[in-house]
């Protein structure tokens, strides 16, 4: 499993860091594959947790896990790899916080997300956006599980597959939620008065 670590240092320094991550390659690979994705990770974490402090925490957790696992990463699709790690980290965090809710991870995540964005929070957010565009209000009025998919795909530009990875749901569910959410936004926009 972890053969790279048990290789002697002498061997490691002779081998290209591209091929084997030893104590030397680990940092290089971390900087190459993980650090460039920090911003995406933070945005996605925020979409999942709906809370700045939790988002930062979740990214830190993800970074630590990624660092530990980087020698086993094959270098392809770093973003998808990191999103899977983030998803696992989130499931773990939720489990630690509320063990009684662990029947369905998807359900649990959306419930916790719903709770963390409580009414007061949502209202404060709306008050912050006194000049918010109609589209923002339409988005804010969506239930969390629909809003998260829109945020991940339309705002953070994840693929369907990446969004599915992060939310731990099938790609088909991403599609149906996303498409329903956009239809809903469209209705919202068409029914709200146009302000000049």
């Amino acid at each position: 499993m972890n053969s790279a670590r048990t290789t002697t240092v002498a061997t490691v320094v002779r081998v290209s860091t591209e091929q084997i991550a030893g104590p030397v390659g680990q940092d290089a690979r971390f900087n190459e594959y993980v650090v460039p994705e920090l911003e995406v990770l933070y945005r996605v974490a925020y979409s999942i947790t709906r809370n700045k402090a939790d988002a930062e925490d979740l990214v830190q957790d993800t970074l630590l896990r990624a660092y530990r696992a980087i020698d086993r990463f094959d270098g392809r699709y770093p973003r998808a790899w990191l999103l899977t790690i983030m998803r696992n980290a989130q499931v773990n965090r939720v489990r630690r916080k509320r063990p009684e809710l662990m029947h369905d991870p998807d359900e649990t995540m959306s419930r916790v997300a719903d709770e963390s964005a409580d009414a007061a929070d949502a209202e404060a957010q709306l008050m912050d956006q006194t000049l918010a565009a109609p589209i923002e209000l339409a988005l804010a009025s969506l239930p969390t599980k629909f809003r998260s998919v829109v945020e991940l795909v339309d705002i953070n530009e994840l693929s369907y597959k990446e969004a599915a990875e992060v939310l731990g749901i099938p790609v088909g569910t991403v599609m149906s939620r996303l498409h329903r959410a956009r239809r809903n936004i469209r209705q919202h926009l068409e029914s709200s008065p146009v302000e000049e």
Partner: peptide, 15 residues
Amino acid sequence: IKADLSALPSSPPAE
């Protein structure tokens, strides 16, 4: 709709 959404700020303030 997609264009409007993608123009929204992608993360919370103080990012």
